Structure formats: structure tokens, C-alpha cells
Simulated assay, not measured.
Amino acid sequence: MEKIEHRAVIKFLTKQGKSVQTIFQELLAVYADFAPGKTMVYKWHDLFKQGRESIEDELRSGRPIEATTPEIVEKVEKLVLEDARLKKKQLAAMVGVSESSILNILHHHLGMTKVSARWVPRILTPLQKRERVECSHQFLELCGERKEEVMARIFTGDVTWVHHYEPESKQESMQWHKKGTPPKKFKVSQSAGKIMATIFWDTEGILLIIKNVVRL
């Protein structure tokens, strides 16, 4: 009855002329953890806009359940959001469909790709982003009309830790990632030793590299 209840609410709000995003947010506000998934809301919103009146499932006349039904897509999405490192083989076993169906759902229905969290740039807070923009504007104002001349006289540096071996391989760090949502970087185990590398460079290239060995 829960699905029927959700569909009835979607039908009512759709007939009121509310957008699908507004309907999805209102369902989340009321049902919280028991709210229907976005895929299901979008599907039924479209059906009701096209003139459908029934909120019941269509009779299938013995036709087998498709591996890409909204319910299965919703289940895969929930599992991946809970653990982005699940492999397609694990997802297939948990959902009860083939690995090829899992890939189809992830890529074509959920718009997800697998990326290495270790290669994701540092995530800045909104305040840090704003401060960097303000500093950049101030610097450009100081340069005035002599931007190229000033840039040629600037050198900068950075510091990084270089481990004696990679604590986590690229393959081990892979996780499912939806466009627009940066993946989380998991904590990795430390290696037996590491080097602190300090590098200075200008517009012409690297000026100096300082390496300090640290034993753990």
C-alpha cells in the first residue's frame, strides 16, 4: 500500500501543477527515510502529466520482470549511495540481476562513472573559495597593465608527502561517482617511510627541490 499511497500523492500534486522537483522535496519532507526514490517520482509524474489516471501497476500477462524497473534502479541507487565502493559483482548479487544490468543502471539510469578518490583535488569550503577569488582580484588590480611583467618575476612553492610505496592502489580506491558530487577520499594506511618534498618554481619551470626523509 505504501507505493500506492506515494503514487496518489504524486498524482494529486501533479494535477496541482507542481514541478517534479517540488513534488520530490515535499515527499522527502513528509516521508523522510520511507520516501520514494527520485526515479520513481519522475516516472509517475511524467505518466500523470501525459494523462494517466490509474495509480495501479499494469497487468503484465506473465511477462518477466525487467532488470531496469524503477524499483530495481532505486534499490541500486540506495546501495551505491550507502557504499560507493561496491563492485558490480557485489551489486548484482545483492539486487539479484546480472552484472551487465548493473552497469546499464549505473551508467544510463543513474549517470554514474567510477573514479579514483585518490585523484580528486582537495575539496575547498565555500569560504576558502571566496577568499581565493578575492585574493586573485586584488592581485590583478596590483598588477595593473603590467601583468606579464609581474608574472615573470613571481616564484612560488608547495610541499607534499611522497610515500616510499603507494599505501593504496588506484584500483582499490575506485568508487562510484555521480557527476556534480565529489567522491570522498578514504583514509589510507601509512607506509614504512616517506619523504617531504618542497618544490619552488616560476614561469620558466622548477627552480629548486628540497627532499627531507622521514622514518616512521
Rank of each mutant, 00 (worst) to 15 (best):
H163C: 01
P64T: 12
D158P: 07
E166W: 00
K3S: 12
K87Q: 09
L216M: 02
L13D: 07
L86S: 02
Q25L: 13
M174V: 00
V30H: 04
E145S: 11
E66M: 11
E145P: 04
K179F: 13
K147I: 14
W44T: 12
N104T: 13
G157M: 04
E77T: 10
V41C: 12
I55S: 03
L216Q: 05
L13K: 13
Q21L: 14
I65L: 12
P183M: 13
K211P: 02
L110H: 09
Q190I: 02
S101P: 09
F12N: 11
G144A: 03
K179D: 14
L13Y: 13
L124V: 13
K3P: 05
I209W: 03
T22K: 12
I23N: 04
A84L: 04
S116M: 01
Q21W: 11
K87F: 07
L110D: 14
K179S: 15
A152H: 09
M94S: 10
R132N: 11
V120W: 07
R118A: 12
S191D: 00
E172R: 00
L106R: 09
A29H: 10
H109P: 12
T203F: 02
V41W: 13
H109K: 15
S100Y: 14
I23C: 05
A192I: 06
A117C: 10
K170V: 00
V20A: 15
P167Q: 02
K87P: 03
K87G: 08
K87L: 05
V41R: 14
S98G: 15
R63V: 04
L216N: 07
G111R: 06
I209V: 15
V115W: 00
Q16A: 06
E26D: 12
K38R: 15
A192K: 08
H163E: 03
R52I: 07
E145T: 11
Q171I: 08
F155M: 14
K43P: 09
R85S: 13
E99H: 01
I105C: 08
R60Y: 14
G180K: 15
V150P: 01
W201P: 04
V214Y: 06
E134Q: 08
F12T: 10
T22P: 03
G180F: 12
F186D: 09
I102Q: 13
G193D: 07
H137M: 10
E172N: 04
I4L: 15
W201S: 07
E148V: 02
L13A: 08
S54H: 03
L127V: 11
R122C: 10
D33L: 12
K114T: 05
A93I: 12
V9D: 11
E204V: 10
P70T: 14
K185E: 11
I105T: 06
A197H: 02
Q128Y: 02
L208A: 04
K18A: 08
D46T: 05
A35T: 01
I4W: 14
R85L: 06
V213G: 02
F24A: 07
G62E: 04
V115C: 00
F12G: 02
I65G: 07
F139H: 07
R153T: 12
S189D: 10
M94P: 01
I102R: 13
V41T: 15
I195A: 08
V95C: 02
L216S: 07
W201Q: 06
I195K: 10
E53N: 10
R63S: 09
W176V: 07
W161Q: 03
L142W: 05
S116K: 00
A35D: 02
H163Y: 08
V133R: 00
T203P: 00
M174P: 08
K88R: 14
H108N: 15
